[in-house]
Design a binder for these strands. Sequence first.
DNA 1: AAATTTTACGCAATCGGTTGCATTAAATAC
DNA 2: GTATTTAATGCAACCGATTGCGTAAAATTT
Lengths: 343, 343
Amino acid sequence: MSISREVTIYDIAKELNISAATVSRSLKNHPAISDKTKQKILATAKEMGYRSNTFARNLRRQKTNTLGVIVPRLNSTFMSEVIAGMEKVANEAGYNLIISQSLEMMKKEAINAATMFNNRVDGLLVSLAYDTDSIAHFEPFIQKNIPLLFFDRICDQQQYAGIVINNYQAAYEITAHLIEQGCQNLFHITGNLSRNVYADRFNGFRQALADHQINHSPEYLLINNLSAQEGKATAHLLLQKKTLPDGVFVANDTCAVACMLELMEKGIRIPEDIAFTGFNNDPISWVVKPQLTTVHYKGFDMGETAAQTLINRLNHGQEASNQTIVLPHELISRQSSLKHATS
Amino acid sequence: MSISREVTIYDIAKELNISAATVSRSLKNHPAISDKTKQKILATAKEMGYRSNTFARNLRRQKTNTLGVIVPRLNSTFMSEVIAGMEKVANEAGYNLIISQSLEMMKKEAINAATMFNNRVDGLLVSLAYDTDSIAHFEPFIQKNIPLLFFDRICDQQQYAGIVINNYQAAYEITAHLIEQGCQNLFHITGNLSRNVYADRFNGFRQALADHQINHSPEYLLINNLSAQEGKATAHLLLQKKTLPDGVFVANDTCAVACMLELMEKGIRIPEDIAFTGFNNDPISWVVKPQLTTVHYKGFDMGETAAQTLINRLNHGQEASNQTIVLPHELISRQSSLKHATS
DNA sequence: AAATTTTACGCAATCGGTTGCATTAAATAC
DNA sequence: GTATTTAATGCAACCGATTGCGTAAAATTT
């Protein structure tokens, strides 16, 4: 079975004895073409099995209609929904998505960015890797004025726009919640503080303590990579403290759950001895017993918003407003933090 | 800040007073060009900030160097690793990935396939959606001889190749394990039996029963969409049975956990009253208490294998062998199924 | 009916690499 | 020293859609 050659606008033109220009214009619904001609061309195109050649189009238009997306990992419900939201908006606007994972490594993030750049994506959506401490690898995009938009894990430099939730506020709320439950000795387990999400959450945590005149032990801040493995390790660290905390706010659910389970293994009662809270509302947060108090926010909405913002900028040439868009979040309180059983 | 025009091979050619053809050949390391010239050109290209124009290249070569990937969802650790494996192999071979989610809907799968087709992907990797009952939407690929490869959720028609694990064998093993634990009244909760993964698991389950001369109740097969929600609903269905099962094999972890938790809520003891097993070794399987016995298989390897197989076919024009590649799996037994405490 | 405007379409250059074939220069053979 | 082979490079025609500009035909105005 030989592969038949692709049908081009020239084939259609020849078939109908008209010019390729007219065919081209008809196919994109150009107003200068009469309806009758358009109909005829559309019908013939369909009949001949024509499909537009994206390369020729891109070559000529200097546009790819492709958006690049770089995320740390694709393995969370949250990220899956972010991508789904982006896909929806992008497809509706005629854009395609090229997605890649940095696997939390700045090095791979840089490689991915370079690939995206060489593939001439029209715009780039990025959630930064865990250890990214410089955004020099995005410089080519900025140089060439290719829209660049961060989401969730954004770049804290003022000049870059981003889509986020109010991590400060969410952390403040969850911490206040712990305090309301009677916690007096609170600890915070979090990730790299140069990531906005973790810095903001830490600040919210601290401010809540300050506002409620709660003193804290000098060792109240524990930093790890927020993996399950390190959550478990951190549990042992906690057990070696002179006095155990009576409340812990962990910056993600994975680490919170691992840490909590390990402590329970060692006989610590949750929430009686230590109240626990996480962040993200991952499925594991409700599977674990006791169910984990956490912060929920909508990945789908974030994806939609991010893609839409980027596309608006592309279409209307909207200036790269360094405006940061803040989406809502929601505190979900569950058993792991409820020292006073309310039910 | 105006956008400076892109550097082309013509610019380089002019700069060095040579032809564009020589530049083109040098950049792709053609043997007919002298090393001296190559060096000079490479250096100048770098200096001038040249980047190859993919469209022009694709337009001429009739290749995109892009692979399409359609998956049901991106929200599992498994799928994230599959993608990571594909990315690794693809990037090494100079290919890019376009990823999209069918969200378990055949309709969206078809739309995605059409988009991929129009974007002229060189090959397509697919894991079928939950309700896909016809693969007519992949017909254009077959017609045009564009390599198509299924993985995990493959197409059972003989002529299509696929990368899988031995779902039959895994299910057999996990069922035999339940029987060894003393289960006599086994139930199976699974998804659409026209999906190979579920059909094979069901067959393995049945065969294990037969081989061990275990009778089964006529209602031992329960089908739902394997979501957490339906897992919970199915728990209630079970509770209405005259006699409860003493062992349940669920075809994925999400549904298994949801069902199990709901039953525990109603006072059923796991594993004493009912032993539970899942499939996939998702993080929730070890977070839940009791930890869930399940089947583990390596997503990364599956992704690598799938991408490599496809690329080999593209490069060496290997005939579309309808050979199915089977990767290893591993039974992970945990508390949820251990009626005889071994520790 | 002539002049002017509007409508509908065609011409041809362009986007930037790629590659078959021709050509020149250098190397080797006779 | 001439003939032949080999190595290195250039020429120019593609790939297929887009679009500024020009023009013929139709519609409208005067």
